[in-house]
Design a protein around this nucleic acid. Structure first.
Lengths: 225, 225
DNA sequence: ATTAATATGTGACCCATATCACATAGTGAA
DNA sequence: TTCACTATGTGATATGGGTCACATATTAAT
């Protein structure tokens, strides 16, 4: 495994570590390559490691009362996975799975806690990370109920275009069912919403391949709900 | 103002401070008493203080695309307010207001940051706080779309009964409009949902006074959605 | 290649909830 | 007290999106 200090996408927190601390981190860190669909962490299971997405793409999902999964977030490289739950009670409160071939590092929780109390800068960066992460849910939470499907789908497309791919042409590596779980709707409704956007000339779609051809209109749909 | 070290509901983080740090904290801390409806922090405004709810009850709210507020959470004493946003970029991403007469302490952000880097235990407790806080939104987020109004209202009543008041009889210090913003519905629908619960004998209601008379049934409604 | 299993599209229908409209009650100010 | 304003309840109606049913693709397995 590549040394943590040479890892290109090591977290800002890890960047604060001293040589000794870095080597402690390294010794308690294991790298795994996962195929699309494979589980990174599982809700309800006891765990002793925090995961870190080094490359690829993953989804955070959680079962709701209806028994179906809701996708809370799509994770990019550089994201910690399961930190919130494991620091609090060792049992994961949500699941995460790779949606592309991904590399994941698992860091031992005791090491992680040790680093927090040993290096205040490490702790400080984690605090900033957690703050940003939490905020990312707020906007979404508020608008899930205030936007209708077309608007939520537009948000999702803009997210994949602007944030994840930085391109107007991109692949969404999710089934229509997963896409529905992400925009809080049913598969059928998502299909129809996609058709709507295609019909009015905002996007082109071939399977999981998307192209935004009228970004401004898409943005308007996102904002008007 | 009462010294922070004597404050009965001082946070776990503050409990880790040394005498010196505590006095620094104290010197940069101001206590304010707010009436119901008064603002604690305001979305979009620059700020240099983190708030801490010492007594009373508050709501976190945020404007959605429709222009109306959504209530993200009801806060109890012991909650930090605005920490996420202010640590990240000084501009609050959400608002908070008292919904009862409340006491709020404002802590200077520079002091706060100083304490984070000076005392790893302080930072550690904040990390745990942030983790718990973030997790509290997950369950809610997932189920907002999977439950219908009666279920969401039941959740809300259970929350006020079990968590906030620890009593089957309690007051919800919110207008019907606010209650709607909390359960993600319209005022009219909430009125009808309350009527439903009354009609089937789960609760009794007089204005803002609620009494749960069939807790198990309410729980069932909450779980079945 | 053939079969089975799963993913996706699409129409018909229905229902939960929003919207609208208005009545009534409550609250605060002059 | 009176007036204005806001909060609340309630009926009628509209509709977004869920549910169901089924056809068609697509993928995986033997």
């Amino acid at each position: 495994m590549e040394p943590c200090e040479l890892c290109a996408i090591r977290s800002k927190a890890v960047q604060t570590l001293t040589r000794d601390e870095m080597s402690l981190h390294q010794q308690n860190c294991a790298e795994v390559v996962l195929k699309p669909g494979e589980s990174i962490i599982k809700e309800g299971l006891l765990s002793s490691h925090i995961a870190f997405l080094k490359s690829g793409l993953a989804k955070i999902h959680k079962k709701g009362v209806k028994g179906t999964d809701q996708i809370l977030k799509i994770l990019q490289p550089g994201s910690y996975i399961g930190m919130q739950t494991i620091l609090v009670n060792k049992i994961h409160q949500y699941s995460a799975s790779a949606i592309e071939e991904s590399t994941v590092c698992y860091i031992d929780i005791y090491t992680f806690k040790e680093l927090i109390t040993r290096n205040a800068n490490f702790a400080n960066e984690l605090i900033l990370y957690l703050c940003r992460d939490e905020l990312s849910y707020f906007e979404r939470f508020v608008n899930v109920h205030q936007k209708q499907i077309d608007g939520r789908l537009a948000d999702c497309l803009i997210y994949f275009s602007d944030i994840i791919n930085e391109s107007r042409t991109f692949t969404i590596p999710l089934s229509r069912n997963d896409l529905a779980a992400l925009v809080c709707a049913t598969r059928e409704s998502v299909t129809r919403a996609i058709k709507d956007l295609v019909d009015i000339g905002t996007i082109k779609v071939h399977g999981k391949e998307f192209e935004i051809i009228n970004y401004d209109l898409l943005k308007t749909i996102s904002e008007k709900g």
